[in-house]
Write a protein that binds this DNA or RNA. Structure first.
Length: 796
DNA sequence: GAAAGCCGGTTCGGG
DNA sequence: ACCGGCTTTC
């Protein structure tokens, strides 16, 4: 047995004994099967060969997956360390570990290969690093490092990184890696990317990474795929070692992950993929719905199990979700059903503007909290607001602060991505691995110590000439007297500090937590924030304390750094009950008794950008997002839209989302907005003249305008449909005609128009909803009519 | 080298 | 509106 097998298995003697004894007893208790429905049992007990479990929202997917693992262990089919179970997020991995622990009674440390794609790849890559020209102690770069590195390369080539931003290149390389294209495999069709130099930079970047002994997230997968492809003996070992493979959220896999899985499952083909094509919402980051749609072709003879009994939502909510998703073309198709009591219909309401929407939802939340319409009271923790884009959150935060409603925002900037945390970590990184040039660069002049661009350029040059790390180059530079004045003294002091801290680390007299405190203290970093008078400084100091506290849970600094490079999350404090506000993406996998889905307006949701960039595919992904949103609700789901919304401080009016048309009317209750006439909308209402495309002028007209919201095409459709419960949603074409007619009729040839980005111009051509406009500054462009406003309606 | 002003971007966001 | 990053200015 080679070392890589030994080191994982030796720790699990207890498991071994248990499985062996179980192997001898055919009729063992199988408590993990209790209460599973027949489909779930099939998902658990179909052990050999490829299995695709199509698990609709709320159908007990995790339950089936964990029971399947318990079953594999219980029947002695595999040892815990012979099961490869992959998830996308650390959260999902943790949850699965916990649940398996409950099923098989405690300690589940025995599953070393249950984890995210990336964490498993790190393990594999550390063992075989030399096969791709790396050392086993390679560092993992995050997006920030990646961009700084690319920026260096770009500047070295004298390219204007304003016009050709590093982010763009990073995104490009990322997409290529998601498709498993190494620099030599990037197809010719991509040659034009990044001003024709994309592949060239990709190549350079990979070379730099190799020299730095570093990898980015994409490499973690890609290197392992390459190792498997180029070393059949290694691949074969793992194919035999992982007797069973399980994959969660298969619809989210990208091509690199797909190849990785296909290679590993290539021998026995004992691969079980769980997923839901209707919940594929990560296309923009490389996920390929095609992987799940193609499963039966990729793995001939696959068993397909459908989990369709939903244990989460009421029939009305399910029906509403099903109605929306039915409009998608590319589906494997599932019909969710439930035994649950009928419950309330999905509620739908339109508002005048985003603020009013937030006000109304705040009121509703208070009502649910008290108990309303004869319902039992719901605690705030049971309620969530799910938005399409994060800027929508602000309206709710503003409102909730005003009325003193406790809330939590889920998502947002993550702890380990904050500037102060990354700075502190850079210090740790240099102490632990003095060769880490990116870390050194980050903090060499933070806090400001007079080592500016010139000094840094000198260090870089010495490093390049001598082929040494930046820290080493600094020593040489000082020894050769290549630096004068303040910079020299400060650099000297900094290097001495690093030497001192490294020595402390070696001696091990201080534990790593104390060492971290010493570093932050002696480097002047803590002091730096104490002297900062800005409002966020106290928070940053607080975060630094948090960081030191987090260190406590690790054995040493190295372990901690390894952990954070892969696990970057926000621990959310418990405590007082709060309403949750999050994006639809962030809500995937969660459920709440009461859910609000605001902002269902065409352009916002479905997002215009998604449709522009990806056409029908984009629209279908948005629709899946709608499906995910509705299916988060257990008992109450309220969808709303606003006729006007302030976006980047511009008023914008919009039509109700086309998804609203797709809601089956018999499962929807249309609510009448409060204060349609009369109600106190004087002070808070936006001035009507500030709204393009709507009316300007007198109070009388303002009143008419407000009424117009509810006479808008979308609203009228809702009203009509509400009166004829059996009616079908209007065909899409009819609706599009309305929009097109409006869009086209709004402009004529020769008209002066305004575009957010291109400025003023004159219409010179009209084709459908696309206009050709001669812009004064930006030249002639084709633009979609909805981006333009007539000059005389430009708000001030 | 540090502060002040300017410009551009601005969905979704795991590892 | 606002932030971050960059350029200009002192």
């Amino acid at each position: 047995m080679s070392d890589w097998e030994m080191d994982e298995s030796s720790a699990f003697d207890g498991w071994e004994r248990r499985s062996l004894s179980q192997r001898a007893m055919p009729a063992r208790p199988t408590p993990y099967l209790d209460g599973l429905n027949p489909d779930q049992r099939a998902a658990v007990e179909t052990i050999d060969g490829p299995v695709l479990v199509l698990a609709g929202a709320g159908t007990g997917k995790t339950r089936a997956l964990t029971a399947r693992i318990a079953h594999l262990l219980n029947t002695g089919r595999a040892q815990p360390n012979e099961i490869l179970a992959v998830t996308f997020t650390n959260k999902a991995a943790r949850e699965m570990k916990d649940r398996i622990g409950q099923l098989v009674g405690g300690r589940i440390e025995g599953m070393p290969w249950l984890g995210t794609f990336h964490s498993i790849c790190v393990k594999l890559l550390r063992r075989h690093a030399e096969l791709v020209d790396l050392k086993a102690n390679f560092t993992i770069l995050d997006t920030d490092d990646q961009i700084r590195l690319l920026k260096q390369l770009i500047r070295a080539e004298d390219i204007d990184d304003k016009r050709w931003p590093a982010r763009m290149l990073a995104g490009l390389i990322d997409r290529w890696k998601n498709r498993a294209w190494t620099p030599d495999k990037v197809p010719a069709s991509e040659a034009g990317a990044y001003n024709n130099r994309g592949t060239e930079f990709y190549e350079q970047y990979q070379e730099r990474l190799r020299i730095l002994n570093a990898v980015d997230f994409g490499d973690l997968l890609l290197h392992v795929v390459r190792i498997f492809q180029e070393n059949p003996d290694v691949l074969e070992k793992y194919q035999r070692w992982f007797r069973y493979i399980l994959v969660d959220e298969y619809q989210d896999t990208n091509i690199a992950q797909y190849l990785w899985l296909r290679l590993l499952a290539g021998g026995h083909k004992n691969i079980c993929c769980v997923g839901d094509d209707d919940q594929s919402i990560y296309g923009w980051r490389g996920a390929e719905v095609g992987n799940i749609l193609r499963f039966e072709k990729d793995f001939p003879g696959a068993t397909v199990v459908r989990l369709e009994q939903n244990y989460r939502s009421t029939p009305h909510i399910l029906a509403a979700a099903s109605g929306v998703i039915a409009a998608n073309e590319d589906r494997l198709g599932k019909t969710l059903w439930t035994d649950a009591a009928e419950g309330e219909k999905v509620r739908l309401i339109g508002h005048w503007d985003g603020e009013e929407e937030a006000r109304w939802i705040g009121g509703e939340i208070e009502a649910y909290q008290r108990g309303t319409r004869g319902l039992a009271p719901y605690p705030l923790d049971d309620m969530a607001i799910l938005v399409r884009a994060s800027f929508q959150m602000r309206a709710f935060e503003d409102r909730f602060l005003t009325i003193g409603m406790p809330y939590r925002v889920i998502g947002g900037p993550r702890f380990y991505e904050r500037m102060e945390i990354r700075d502190a970590m850079a210090y740790f990184r240099v102490v632990v691995s003095p060769d880490d040039g990116l870390a050194f660069e980050r903090i060499v002049n933070v806090p400001k110590r007079g080592i500016g661009d010139k000094a840094q350029a000198a260090i870089n040059q010495v490093a390049r000439l001598n082929g040494v790390s930046l820290l080493e180059a600094s020593r040489i530079l000082l020894a050769e007297d290549g630096l004068r004045g303040k910079a020299a003294g400060e650099l000297r002091a900094l290097i001495d500090s690093f030497d001192r801290w490294s020595a402390l680390l070696q001696q091990g007299e201080l534990n790593h937590v104390e060492l971290a405190e010493v570093i932050l203290d002696e480097s002047g970093y803590t002091e730096f924030w104490k002297n900062d008078k800005s409002t966020e400084a106290p928070g940053r100091l607080e975060n630094l304390k948090e960081l030191v506290k987090a260190l406590d849970e690790f054995e040493n600094l190295q372990g901690f750094l390894e952990h954070v490079s892969l696990v970057m999350e926000n621990e959310q404090e418990e405590g007082t009950p709060k309403v949750s506000i999050m994006t639809l993406h962030g809500a995937k996998g969660l459920e709440f008794p009461v859910v609000f889905l605001p902002g269902w307006e065409d352009g916002l949701f479905p997002s215009q950008r998604s449709m522009d960039e990806n056409g029908l595919k984009g629209l279908e992904e948005e629709r899946r997002l709608a499906y995910v949103g509705i299916t988060r609700a257990e008992r109450h789901c309220t969808i709303s839209f606003a006729a006007n919304r302030r976006v980047y401080n511009q008023w914008q009016s919009s039509l109700p989302s086309r998804f609203i048309d797709e809601l089956p009317p018999q499962h929807v209750e249309v609510l009448t907005p409060p204060g349609l006439y009369g109600g106190g909308f004087g002070a808070a209402a936006p001035a009507a003249e500030a709204i393009p495309g709507i009316m300007r002028g007198s109070d009388l007209e303002e009143r008419a305008t407000r009424a117009d919201v509810y006479n808008s095409p979308g609203w009228k459709r809702m009203q009509t449909r509400a009166q004829q419960p059996r009616g079908m949603a209007q065909p899409r074409e009819a609706r599009n005609m309305v929009i097109d007619a409006e869009a086209v009729s709004a402009f004529e040839i020769g008209e002066r128009v305004f575009h957010q980005k291109f400025g003023y111009g004159a219409v010179v051509g009209i084709e459908g909803d696309k206009l050709t406009v001669d812009f004064e500054k930006a030249g002639t462009k084709k633009v979609v009519a909805s981006y333009l406003s007539a000059e005389d309606s430009i708000p001030f």
